[in-house]
């Protein structure tokens, strides 16, 4: 692999992280608005406010970058980067088209999960380093939630990896058949719930619940650093959506996969992102004890049952 190719692939991943979250964010603006009987942004960019998030970015750049006097300065400043960079790596690992991913590594399923696990540290660092009680409470809620939902997330992905017999995302897509939709359904539901919780989106947004803890770990952040946290949230949404599409919906598989594979992957990812947005508009926030009960008494047993089911299926069919 030449240096040129490496830099091209890195640039592609960076562009994906800068563009796809904005598309997801704009979709959220518009879908949420119409679900609430509003129009949403209409001015920026001219046509139905398509450039609203670009305008928001420009606004964030102009704002003052404030570090609280009592904050732990280095950790406070580092946190947004720790939150965002893992998602750049994760997006680079996702195979979009047959034989096409920005970075191809053998154990990409595990690597994606691992970097997402690192990404959540950014929230915790922000929560602790802000020297703010709301940030601390938000950070604690966030940590408790991430701890609880990491396990079902990994278990449900492990089930798919077992069914495919490989730890490579591209290998999972190649092994995928439509009857996985039934066979792996419980795991898919567990993954969707756990991924929503991992992203701290409604109904699992207790860590950043603005009516309770202002903005949780992000309370003290301004300007570009705050924008990085927002970008990380939407990049996470895109990564989780694409990951769901790749692992459970067959990624690029579909009619004309040789030519239109990338389109199928993006469509399946967009479907999941839309579902996450729809859930956000429709459902109320869960309380902290409800979160924990759901994770440990429903999701973990369900994921373990799925793992057993997958094992039986693999043993019977091979």
């Amino acid at each position: 692999m030449s240096l040129l190719e490496i830099s091209l692939r890195s640039l592609a991943a960076l562009a994906a992280v800068l563009v796809l979250p904005l598309v997801a964010g704009q979709a959220e603006h518009k879908v949420m608005a119409h679900m609430q009987g509003r129009l949403g942004p209409m001015y920026a960019g001219g046509f139905h406010g398509w450039a609203q998030l670009v305008a928001d970015g420009v606004k964030f750049v102009q704002k003052e970058d404030i570090t609280p006097a009592a904050a732990d300065r280095s950790v406070f400043r580092l946190a947004p980067a720790v939150a965002l960079i893992p998602y750049v790596i994760a997006i680079a690992l996702l195979p979009i088209h047959p034989g096409l991913a920005a970075a191809e590594v053998p154990g990409s399923v595990l690597l994606v999960l691992a970097v997402i696990g690192v990404g959540v540290l950014g929230t915790l660092m922000a929560g602790w380093a802000s020297a703010n009680k709301y940030a601390l409470v938000g950070g604690m809620r966030s940590a408790a939630q991430l701890l609880a939902y990491e396990l079902p997330l990994v278990l449900s992905v492990a089930s798919v990896a077992m069914a495919a017999g490989t730890l490579s995302l591209a290998g999972v897509v190649e092994a995928w058949t439509p009857w996985w939709l039934v066979w792996q359904l419980p795991g898919a539901i567990v993954f969707l719930i756990a991924a929503t919780a991992e992203l701290q989106r409604v109904p699992f947004d207790a860590p950043i619940a603005d009516s309770e803890v202002v903005m949780g770990p992000w309370t003290e952040y301004t300007g570009l650093r705050f924008a990085f946290f927002m970008l990380a949230e939407y990049a996470g949404m895109v990564v989780m959506g694409l990951l769901f599409g790749i692992l459970w919906l067959g990624g690029w598989q579909g009619p004309f996969a040789e030519q239109l594979g990338w389109l199928w992957t993006l469509l399946k990812g967009a479907l999941i992102v839309l579902l996450i947005i729809w859930i956000r508009v429709s459902w109320p926030r869960m309380r902290e004890d409800q979160l924990q009960r759901l994770a440990w008494t429903v999701l973990v047993p369900l994921a373990l049952a799925q793992l057993a089911l997958t094992a039986i299926g693999v043993v019977v069919t091979t």
Binding site: V31, H34, M35, G37, R38, W278, S282
Partner: peptide
Amino acid sequence: GLVKGMATTARQMMSPTHT
């Protein structure tokens, strides 16, 4: 209840806005 919530928002999305 959850399904009903999602149905309500979906129906609202299909109907004209009040803005």
